[in-house]
Simulated scan of single mutants.
Amino acid sequence: MTLRAEGVSRSAGGRLILDGVDLTPRRGGTTGVLGPNGSGKSTLLRLLAGVLSPARGVVTLDGCPMGELRRRAVAKRVAVVEQQADTQVELTVADVVRLGRVPHRSAWRPGSPEDEEAVATALERTGLTGHAERSWHTLSGGERQRVQVARALAQRPRELLLDEPTNHLDIQHQLDLLALVAALPLTAVVALHDLNLAAMYCDDLLVLRRGRVVARGAPADVLTEELIAHVYRVRADVTPSGPGGRPHIRFLGTLPPSGPEGAPASHEHLA
């Protein structure tokens, strides 16, 4: 067993953000969470991390409700990479990555050889070994994102949650980062905007629209021209490409507004 969300709902400011969402990521696989801005992707990840509590439904870790677990116990298992992170404290890249070891240490205890090994491995995996002594404040946005991924890897989690991890990265580092995540021997849930990246690197997809699940399944089954039109209001040409016939999407233009309730097409049969 691993992370699981069962019928979770969450509201903010009187607006329903998530409405009865179920998600059971495949153990050891990479699950992509897709949807337009405001569809509930970030909120779902925060529920899975235990940062937020659902108004209805439950999130469990190995069958135990997240609310019944100690925060340190969750932090040892579940690592989170947010969209943006900053600090006013003067830290080096290595210092930031060492923060990933905090759940594994007693307060004020110095780092152990195991901690330093985890940090060195995380820096190497993310291509940051040569930047270990650079100041955080001198890094570009893309470099900071890679450091946050390294911090999460230093945590040595079994579940990894990433909220738009490719933001601010150039194309090479987008591909490198998602290839790294997909190859890791852990369960990953990644919120993404780029449908082609999701098709290339995710084993399973969950698509949200206005807080509800409209499709789930393998990329080839989910990323259809009909679904893209319904969810994103965009015309697209979808063709099989690469190993396993993973879909490649070519965008052709936007569609006119569909009215207050959206297009009538439904993909609930995939959910």
Rank of each mutant, 00 (worst) to 15 (best):
E116V: 06
E116F: 08
E116S: 10
E116G: 08
E116R: 14
A118S: 14
A118F: 06
V119L: 03
V119A: 04
V119M: 05
A120V: 04
A120Q: 10
A120M: 07
A120H: 05
T121R: 15
T121E: 15
T121C: 14
T121G: 13
A122D: 10
A122Q: 07
L123H: 03
E124A: 15
R125E: 12
R125H: 06
R125P: 03
T126I: 08
T126G: 05
T126A: 10
T126L: 11
G127T: 07
L128S: 01
L128D: 02
L128P: 01
T129C: 01
T129E: 06
T129F: 00
T129S: 12
T129G: 10
T129N: 00
T129M: 02
G130Q: 09
G130I: 01
H131L: 14
H131R: 14
A132G: 00
A132P: 01
A132K: 04
A132S: 09
E133Q: 10
E133W: 02
R134L: 07
R134P: 02
S135H: 00
S135Q: 02
S135L: 05
S135Y: 00
W136G: 02
W136H: 05
W136C: 03
W136K: 04
H137A: 01
H137P: 00
T138S: 13
L139I: 00
L139V: 00
S140V: 06
S140T: 09
S140L: 06
S140K: 04
G141W: 04
G141S: 05
G142Q: 00
G142L: 01
E143A: 02
E143D: 02
E143P: 02
R144D: 00
R144I: 01
R144H: 01
R144T: 01
Q145C: 01
Q145S: 03
Q145W: 02
R146E: 04
R146V: 07
R146D: 05
V147E: 14
Q148I: 05
Q148L: 15
V149M: 08
V149L: 15
V149K: 03
V149P: 04
A150W: 10
A150E: 09
R151W: 08
R151M: 11
R151I: 07
A152N: 07
A152S: 10
A152Q: 08
A152M: 08
A152F: 07
L153R: 14
L153E: 13
A154Q: 08
A154L: 10
A154F: 08
Q155D: 13
Q155G: 12
Q155T: 14
P157S: 14
P157W: 11
R158K: 11
R158E: 15
E159I: 09
E159W: 12
E159F: 12
L160W: 13
L160I: 14
L160G: 12
L160K: 10
L161T: 15
L161G: 12
L161P: 11
L161N: 13
L162A: 13
D163L: 11
D163E: 11
E164T: 13
E164Y: 13
P165T: 11
T166I: 13
T166E: 10
N167G: 00
L169A: 04
L169T: 06
D170G: 08
D170Q: 09
I171C: 04
I171A: 12
Q172G: 02
H173K: 03
H173R: 09
Q174L: 07
Q174A: 04
Q174E: 09
Q174K: 14
L178W: 05
L178Y: 06
L178G: 02
